[in-house]
Amino acid sequence: MGELLRSFEGGEGIDETSKSEARQAIEDLPEDTFATAIVELASPMAEEEVNSVLGAPGIQSDALYLFLSRRLEGSEKPIYWRSCAIYESECENTAATQLFQRWVSKLHWTDKLNLKNLGLDIDVLRQVAREGRIYGLLAYGYSEKFLAEIIEKPEVRTVKIVATARG
Rank of each mutant, 00 (worst) to 15 (best):
L66M: 07
R6Q: 15
W109K: 05
A25E: 08
L66W: 13
E88W: 10
H108L: 04
N114Y: 04
L107D: 09
E40Q: 07
L120T: 00
L115W: 08
N93F: 12
T36A: 14
Y80M: 14
I122F: 05
D111G: 05
N51F: 05
Y80I: 00
L138K: 01
Y135A: 04
L147K: 10
P44N: 11
T164A: 12
A139I: 00
P78R: 07
A63Q: 14
S69Y: 04
E92D: 09
E76C: 06
E21F: 03
K106C: 04
I86W: 02
N51D: 11
Q127F: 12
Q127E: 13
S83Y: 08
L125T: 11
A63L: 14
D32L: 12
Q98L: 12
F67G: 02
A37G: 05
K153C: 02
E49G: 11
C84P: 00
W103G: 01
G141H: 08
V156F: 11
E49K: 15
R70M: 09
E76P: 00
R71E: 04
V104L: 11
A35I: 02
Y87L: 07
P154G: 13
I14M: 03
T17M: 03
S43N: 10
W81N: 00
E31L: 14
I150R: 00
S7A: 15
Y65Q: 00
R82V: 10
V53C: 02
L107E: 03
E9W: 01
C84H: 06
S18P: 01
A35P: 00
E27K: 09
P78M: 02
Y87T: 13
L5M: 11
V162S: 01
R157L: 12
E92R: 13
L137K: 01
Q98M: 13
D121F: 02
E49R: 13
S18M: 11
S83V: 03
L5C: 03
D28R: 15
R23P: 06
K106V: 02
I86Y: 07
M1Y: 10
V104R: 08
F146A: 04
G132Y: 14
S18C: 07
N117S: 02
Y135L: 03
L72W: 15
P154A: 15
V39H: 06
I14G: 00
A96I: 03
Y140D: 12
E16Y: 12
I26T: 12
L54H: 05
R71M: 13
R133F: 10
D123V: 08
E90K: 14
K19Y: 06
I86N: 03
I150V: 12
A129V: 07
A96C: 08
P44A: 15
E47P: 04
A129F: 00
K145L: 11
S75Q: 08
P78I: 07
